[in-house]
Write a protein that binds this DNA or RNA. Structure first.
Lengths: 187, 187
DNA sequence: TTTTCCGTTCTACGATTGTTGAGTCAACGT
DNA sequence: ACGTTGACTCAACAATCGTAGAACGGAAAA
């Protein structure tokens, strides 16, 4: 029908991509445990066994699905706080599926938790470099904590109050607090 | 050995309590899906079938386990922000097991998510009454969002940076941001 | 005591899960 | 043209899950 005959390598790349996309979608929607390999395969229009053959195990499929390209330094020129708000996706309402997949599972799946701690740790390190004072790391951690809270509440819990509000409004209200955290002066 | 002969009603109450405690413990530690009825029963030193007989289903057991007494207005005299920080348990490092159980599962278990939304919504309502301005609800929601972030990162993800920090320090750094959110003046 | 009740356990069912190995068929190298 | 590779499917296994029903045994009621 719609699928023409393609060279083997190309065809493989595409199905592998379809599987990864379906995996990211389902992991992000229902988390690691409830995202069945069978459901993922069905969503990718593929036999469940193929998923195993390509990725070895559900565990490895998950790891590959949440592996991030880590290219969020795109908006690098801006202010520190502005970069945070942009990364949060609060301005555009968008966010990479892989990150959502990781966050959805981080409370119930040990490997996802480890992955989340690693990612958060790295961002805390990077953030702490731009913060003066001895408690730079703690401040950075708390800033990331705010990001986690907003993302979880907005994107995963889908709290009405946040979904209804315009992104710029959220960013505007969050700004002072983040400045107080990352800035040098605290009462 | 240690268990004396007790009147039937009393004995029932105790085992039921043991089951609920074990359920709260496991739900809080590994979340709804991974907290097996068999594991809960083993932790309560009881046969799995008994759990079913008492609570009907795993779903009902969970609901009863996370049902909160909602008595956190104890520290009612304090300031608004101080009450928030106290409720967060950031000062004492404690938090009710039932709340942790609910939060652990809220991203992957639909009913837990609904329960979390309900609880958060109620607290947002209560908080919004003390906040002036038209965006009171959004401000209240964002304040709760911060609480969610800190709790998730600290108590559930067990982020090193937060675990190592003294609670008062965390409260001190969070205060300005929460004041900016709940207070009347924003830049 | 005898009989009824009920806290508790034993055993098992059916469904679903991750995972495996044999099999099919078209695309490839020669 | 031909044998081989590799993408892909079929069917099944073992384990684990929530759950149901029958049975035991001691406490309560008669």
């Amino acid at each position: 029908m719609g699928e023409k005959m393609l060279p083997r390598a190309e065809r493989r790349r595409r199905t592998e991509g379809r599987i990864l996309d379906a995996a990211r979608k389902l992991f992000a929607e229902v988390g690691y445990e409830r995202a069945t390999i069978r459901a993922i395969a069905r969503s990718a229009e593929v036999d469940p066994a193929l998923v195993m053959q390509y990725f070895g195990s559900k565990q490895e499929l998950f790891q590959q699905a949440v592996r991030v390209v880590d290219a969020d330094a795109a908006t690098g020129g801006d202010d520190l706080v502005e970069r945070l708000l942009a990364t949060l996706g609060v301005k555009l309402g968008e966010m990479p599926r892989s990150s959502l997949a990781m966050m959805r599972s981080m409370l119930t799946h040990p490997e996802a938790a480890a992955s989340a701690r690693r990612t958060l740790g790295a961002q805390i390190d990077r953030l702490a470099e731009s913060i003066p004072g001895e408690d730079a790391r703690l401040r950075a951690a708390l800033a990331m904590t705010v990001m986690v809270g907003v993302t979880v509440s907005h994107r995963l819990l889908e709290l009405d109050e946040l979904r209804e509000a315009p992104p710029e409004e959220i960013a505007r209200l969050l700004r002072p607090g983040l400045r107080a955290l990352t800035g040098p002066d605290v009462s």
